[in-house]
Amino acid sequence: MSAKANKFSMVTPCDSRYLELIRDFVAKIAKITGFDEEHVNKIQLSVDEACTNVVKHAYKGIDPKDIRVDVTFDQEKITVTVTDRGKGFNPDKSKLKDMDTYFNKFRRGGLGIHLIKILMDEVSYSIDPCRKNSVKMIKYLCKMESPEKKKEQQILMEESYARHK
């Protein structure tokens, strides 16, 4: 099925004060795409987490510091790509966490990618340090309210808890 894509972009300074602006930008496009409030919230939170990771980790000692957010949507899905020009990260280290271990160690932080993977349908990374590091997140309209997706999310959560039991 060919779909006409609609494209939007936003570039902000790399500062947590702009997270709300980015969330609002993405939420409005997600609504236009056709997602209900519950799914708009999931998309919004995922983008917040991706941008927060950029603010916290991407640019130590590197200038200029900015965050680029590209959003495209068509009849099938919304795609949000968060890009920075910082030091990059190792995507292999961003596996789903075992939450029992996480809680037992009273850890804080490090839940951003974990949340994105639970909340979005597809997540992929492209890392080119100091040039272009991207996190691409996709949410499909057809999976909205889908019992299969809800079951899949439940299984992921249960696996996470059960892993070390």
Binding site: R23, D48, E49, F106, R107, R108, L111, L115
Partner: peptide
């Protein structure tokens, strides 16, 4: 609204 940064605050003190 809450993101993981907010959740992390609780984790930082509970122990």
């Amino acid at each position: 609204y809450i993101s993981s940064a907010g959740l992390g605050v609780f984790m930082g003190f509970i122990e």
